[in-house]
Amino acid sequence: NCLEGLIFVITGVLESIERDEAKSLIERYGGKVTGNVSKKTNYLVMGRDSGQSKSDKAAALGTKIIDEDGLLNLI
C-alpha cells in the first residue's frame, strides 16, 4: 500500500494505460481518486490534452503535478 492515504486527480488522456486502469491501480495500492483538485489533493496526474484549469488550481494549492510515468514510478 505505497499510496496509502494519498489523493489523486487524473486529467487528460493517458498514453500507456486507460484512465479506469490508472484509477484501479491507485486504489489497489491504497490511494484514492477524486474528480477535482482541492487542498486535500496530493497529486495531479496530467495526461495529453489536459485542461488548464486543473493545473492552475493545483499550482495555486501547491499540489504536486506529475505525468503518467511519475505515477508509475510512485508504485
Rank of each mutant, 00 (worst) to 15 (best):
Arg48Asp: 06
Ser16Thr: 14
Gln52Ala: 09
Val33Ile: 05
Leu3Ser: 00
Leu3Ile: 05
Ile7Val: 11
Leu3Ala: 00
Glu15Trp: 04
Ala58His: 07
Leu25Tyr: 02
Leu6Thr: 06
Lys40Asp: 15
Tyr29His: 14
Ile26Glu: 00
Gly31Cys: 01
Gly62Pro: 04
Lys57Trp: 08
Ser55Thr: 15
Lys23Ser: 06
Ser24Gln: 13
Val9Gly: 07
Lys23Leu: 07
Ser24Ile: 12
Leu72Tyr: 12
Phe8His: 02
Gly51Pro: 14
Leu72Val: 06
Arg28Asn: 05
Leu3Gln: 03
Thr41Phe: 00
Ala59Asp: 11
Asn36Glu: 14
Glu15Gly: 09
Leu74Trp: 02
Glu4Ile: 03
Ser38Leu: 03
Gln52Tyr: 13
Gly31Arg: 02
Asp67Phe: 04
Ala58Glu: 06
Ile26Thr: 00
Arg19Tyr: 14
Gly70Glu: 10
Ile26Lys: 00
Gly12Ile: 00
Asn1Met: 07
Ser16Trp: 04
Thr63Ala: 10
Gly62Arg: 05
Val45Phe: 05
Ile75Gly: 02
Ala22Lys: 02
Ile10Phe: 12
Asp56Arg: 13
Glu21Tyr: 08
Glu27Arg: 09
Asn1Trp: 03
Lys57Asn: 08
Leu3Gly: 00
Ile17Met: 15
Glu15His: 09
Gly70Asp: 09
Ser53Tyr: 13
Tyr29Ile: 02
Ser55Val: 15
Lys64Asp: 06
Glu18Met: 04
Met46Val: 14
Glu18Asp: 14
Asp67Cys: 04
Ser16Pro: 07
Asp69Leu: 10
Asp49Gln: 12
Glu68Pro: 07
Glu21Cys: 06
Thr11His: 09
Ile75Val: 07
Asp69Gln: 15
Leu71Cys: 01
Lys64Thr: 11
Arg48Tyr: 03
Asp20Gln: 11
Thr34Asp: 15
Asp69Tyr: 11
Thr34His: 15
Lys40Gly: 09
Glu15Thr: 10
Lys57Gly: 07
Leu6Trp: 03
Ser38Glu: 08
Asp67Gly: 07
Leu72Glu: 05
Leu44Tyr: 04
Val9Asp: 06
Val13Ser: 14
Asp20Arg: 10
Arg48Ala: 07
Glu27Asp: 03
Lys39Leu: 09
Ser53Leu: 14
Ala22Ser: 02
Ser53Arg: 14
Asp49Cys: 07
Ile65Tyr: 01
Thr11Trp: 09
Ile7Tyr: 12
Ile65Met: 10
Asp56Thr: 13
Leu71Asp: 02
Ala59Val: 12
Val37Cys: 05
Ser50Asn: 09
Arg28Lys: 12
Leu71Ala: 01
Leu14Met: 12
Thr63Trp: 00
Ile10Thr: 04
Leu25Cys: 04
Val45Ala: 02
Ile7Asn: 15
Ser24Val: 11
Val37Ala: 03
Thr34Asn: 14
Ala59Ile: 14
Ala58Ile: 08
Ile26Gln: 00
Glu4Cys: 01
Lys39Gly: 09
Ile65Lys: 04
Gly12Lys: 03
Asp67Arg: 06
Gln52Val: 11
Ile7Lys: 10
Ala59Leu: 13
Gly70Asn: 06
Arg19Ile: 12
Ile7His: 14
Ser55Pro: 13
Arg19Ser: 09
Arg28Ser: 12
Ile7Met: 10
Ser50Phe: 14
Asn73Cys: 06
Ile7Gly: 07
Gly12His: 02
Asn73Leu: 05
Ser50Leu: 06
Asp56Cys: 11
Gly12Thr: 00
Gly30Asp: 00
Leu72Ala: 04
Met46Tyr: 02
Gly62Tyr: 02
Leu14Pro: 06
Thr63Val: 15
Thr11Gln: 10
Ile7Arg: 13
Leu72Asn: 05
Glu21Pro: 03
Ile66Leu: 06
